[in-house]
């Protein structure tokens, strides 16, 4: 009977994951592997293609080739295009924060926790969750953005002026290793829940109920991985190990953002992202 409950929990979380997130890993992998040939992404690989594609960044539906406005002499200078792109990334991230929040609320027991603790759990888990989800959109050559409608190459991201050019490389390195575990969306739904319900986040008022929920989620994840990946008996341990790497990745990222604030006076962080990053590590 207990395993039936754990399976029901996995099913529930998978369903709310599908409701909360517009681009699943399954869809992203289909696009990246070229299986969606009638829906190939627009590729941004240099400044010219960035300027051509930037108005579609964060569009849910890119106009077809013949309906795209012709690029004329009114192009912004490349530097501005780069900055505007970084701003739209922030807006997409803020939107993703609200998607993750909706997902968190669907985890049984989460909304019954003290409201302060809900804030703490989300604050500390948010960037970890976003990086895990970003891995689904990446391969060694680049990443999907704009709901899978644009593919931006890793080389182009690397060419961004300092320090932006260096910021994505560690995420690619993490993603390539993480993707080797071959988790699917139903595994991810549970893994993200486990990350969110971490009882060791600083400042939690009531640790016990958080740990109790996470314990159930962990048992559900263990069973899920056993059933979904019978040929990888060590997968559960490997997945948990990634949580340590993830914390390091996030703490390095937050440090880079803090450095940015000192060097890039024009760079203003989205207020929601500011809330999350303030006093994080």
């Amino acid at each position: 009977p207990e395993s039936a409950d754990l399976r029901a929990l996995a099913k529930h979380l998978y369903e709310s994951y599908l409701k909360s997130f517009p681009l699943t890993k399954a869809k992203a992998r289909a696009i990246l592997s070229g299986k969606n040939s009638d829906n190939a992404p627009f590729v941004i690989h240099d400044m010219r293609s960035l300027m051509e594609g930037e108005q579609f960044v964060n569009c849910r539906q890119i106009p077809t080739q013949e309906h795209r406005p012709v690029m004329g002499a009114l192009h912004p200078p490349p530097d501005e295009a780069e900055l505007r792109f970084l701003h739209s990334c922030q807006f997409r991230s803020a939107e993703a924060v609200s998607e993750v929040t909706e997902f968190a609320k669907s985890i049984p027991g989460f909304v019954n926790l003290d409201l302060n603790d809900q804030v703490t759990l989300l604050k500390y888990a948010m960037i970890e969750v976003l990086f895990i989800m970003m891995a689904a959109l990446m391969n060694k050559d680049g990443t999907l953005i704009s709901y899978g409608q644009i593919f931006m190459t890793r080389e182009f991201l690397k060419s961004f002026r300092k320090p932006f050019g260096e910021m994505m490389e560690p995420k690619f390195e993490f993603s390539i290793k993480f993707n080797l575990l071959e988790l699917d969306d139903s595994d991810m739904a549970l893994f993200l829940s486990v990350i969110i319900l971490s009882g060791d986040r600083p400042g939690l008022l009531n640790v016990k109920p958080v740990e109790d929920i996470q314990e159930t989620l962990l048992r559900s994840l263990e069973l899920q991985l056993k059933m979904n990946h019978p040929d990888s008996p060590q997968l559960f341990a490997k997945v948990l190990q990634k949580m340590t790497d993830l914390r390091q990745l996030v703490s390095d990222h937050v440090q880079s953002i803090q450095l940015l604030k000192q060097t890039e006076i024009d760079m203003c962080l989205h207020p929601l992202l500011q809330e999350i990053m303030r006093d994080l590590y």
Partner: peptide, 21 residues
């Protein structure tokens, strides 16, 4: 903590209506 995280707090309290980001 809620005071320092007003938008996050609002997202948590709002059930389905889209929040102005």
């Amino acid at each position: 903590l809620k005071e320092k995280h007003k938008i996050l707090h609002r997202l948590l309290q709002n059930s389905t209506s889209p929040v102005d980001l």
